[in-house]
Design a protein around this nucleic acid. Structure first.
Lengths: 338, 338
DNA sequence: TTGAAAGCGCTACCAG
DNA sequence: CTGGTAGCGCTTTCAA
């Protein structure tokens, strides 16, 4: 592993000064086009690559963003896609993305060194978020912050859960449902999103003069837990539709319901508020919301860039577009339309 | 955002020199225990945090590792857990983890600045891996490398796919299966792991004088694709067990098979080679391999540390322990053991 | 046991 | 348009 080539190397090779090379490379147009090209060409030929540490030390910026995904939901593909959306766009903007885990610091004397932090689905009192915020760098959240933490965010990008939730419920009614139940995350994952989902459902029920049927469950329940939750829900009451908030649970509920004799898409309807690409968005019997998490992540990254560009003087709030992917109406056994 | 506190600040405050503070902080025991404690205490009180860039510039190391997950499989929870295993252990060892996406660089004049790269399930000719390797930093792979890339890795940690695959197949036989089929990843994800899985199955079949029944499928197939693949497999032949290689497919196949009248765990057996925590490892009817991906990631990180400590002079190869979680034998309707 | 000084690679400023 | 120089914060000699 030989010593890396630096700007002095290429300065010597071209018989120029450090400064000329530097400005030619960063391209702030103080040098003549001719020398600029010579420098760039030589840099490429010699395999020059900027030393980030040196640059950062000088410019006082790290060139990296921190990304934090709460431990509770790390198994969901939504967050993986969100993550790579952030990574992808960040790379395009010239930033690295550093991932933070749960512990993250105790051993570390050297705190995370980042220019900004992005947090997905911030939980009200997550200590990691507080620590991230305390570093003083801009904070962008995917999903709103609530409670004491809420003013910590410089940028928020969220899905309009209220609008989308209603679209799902209305769609179920359109398919023939009269009494949809909601399966929402339990207290272990009491994120603002979870709260929005509950509130939306309750408000919708009130509008429709419907007795709400709400069950709570872990975001990644065991088969047994899901099984008993579903059974409890359908035996307790006369519901004819089930809206599952956590990703994947609608897909996993389908076989349970079918084994109990329900015909999904006909006398019973299923919906997913966070459609899983493999199991729900591809499943025509399930009405699902496509939250396009990859694009969601990209937008979060773009928002971060915007805030950084402004010198962290602005606060941004945007909505990310989600899409309703309705279930295909089940072909009636008695005949067929079209 | 006030200026960060540096070692000079705390040197001034304590009326010491930069050097003394530095060595006290890094604790290489040249200063007296008394001053060392004074310095450490002051640092904590003043909220000192090491400037990574400065340290790196001096020491010529970035304090960060790169992690790359092939795009094809990013939706699998296995990789998410692996990722956070790496992040967790890296943090404990004092390293940041920078995530790499597919594009990663075109815009970047500034190549990734890392001390080492970790790659999960390296695909034979992945250009990102080549680029990572070309940076000259140590490379650790989760899963073996094959083909032209294979000598690029300084460290390899892998599951003994051969041993574990056989354990699964033998277990199915023990449960009563005679003719197990394999559902393996298609050419889109032709990783060494996928190859191992196929080879193991074929060798096992030969040993047992069984005609192999092999189907290939996308690692994240649509419901329709999975449905038709399963149907094709069982109608074409008289198989009585199905081993699914890609994560989650055994769980997703279960309802398909059941809807066709098969009783899983009795006359038909299902197995998952990469047990999904939510759908397969929790499902008592499915024989599943628990690859403990989080721990897998941690081990990869520890291996990286070991290689780095050696000055990248050693090459390491280890096996990561996976666990067979057999299906619970279905209670026979005619009676019960015990 | 401590201090002074050099220097990692880069950008920014000030002359020319 | 270009060169010289200072200095970002840190570690690491070399002297005291």
């Amino acid at each position: 592993m030989t010593r890396a080539v630096t700007i002095v190397d290429i300065a010597r090779a071209l018989d120029l000064s450090k400064s000329t090379v530097s400005s030619a490379l960063t391209g702030q147009g103080r040098s003549s086009e001719a020398t600029r090209r010579r420098v760039v060409e030589a840099a490429a030929r010699m395999g020059y690559v900027t030393n980030r540490a040196a640059r950062q030390l000088r410019v006082q910026s790290t060139g990296a963003w921190g990304l934090y995904i709460p431990a509770q939901v790390r198994m969901q593909s939504f967050y993986m896609q969100f993550t790579f959306g952030v990574v992808d766009e960040a790379a395009a903007l010239g930033y690295d993305v550093t991932l933070f885990g749960r512990t993250s610091e105790p051993t570390q004397k050297m705190g995370p060194q980042i220019d900004g932090a992005i947090v997905a689905d911030p939980l009200p009192d997550d200590p990691v978020i507080e620590r991230l915020a305390r570093t003083g760098v801009p904070l962008v959240t995917g999903g709103p912050m609530r409670g004491s933490n809420s003013r910590l965010a410089d940028g928020v990008i969220e899905v309009d859960n209220y609008k989308m939730g209603r679209q799902v419920l209305d769609q179920l009614v359109r398919l023939g449902a009269r009494l949809p139940a909601l399966m929402a995350p339990d207290a272990m994952f009491d994120s603002p999103w979870a709260g929005d989902v509950r509130d939306t459902y309750l408000a919708w029920c009130e509008d429709h003069r419907i007795e709400p049927k709400l069950a709570t469950i872990a975001v990644s329940p065991t088969s047994q837990d899901l099984d008993s939750a579903v059974r409890r829900l359908i035996t307790d009451s006369s519901i004819d539709a089930l809206v599952c908030a956590p990703q994947g649970l609608a897909g996993r509920s389908q076989p349970i319901l079918e084994s109990l004799g329900y015909k999904i898409g006909k006398e019973f309807h299923l919906a997913a508020l966070v459609g899983d690409p493999a199991t729900e968005l591809m499943n025509e019997k399930i009405t699902a919301l496509d939250l396009t998490p990859f694009e969601f992540g990209r937008e979060a990254a773009r928002m971060m860039e915007e805030i950084l560009q402004s010198g962290a003087t602005i606060r941004l709030h945007k909505f990310h577009e989600a899409h309703l992917r309705p279930a295909v109406a089940a072909a009636d056994t008695s005949g067929t339309t079209m």
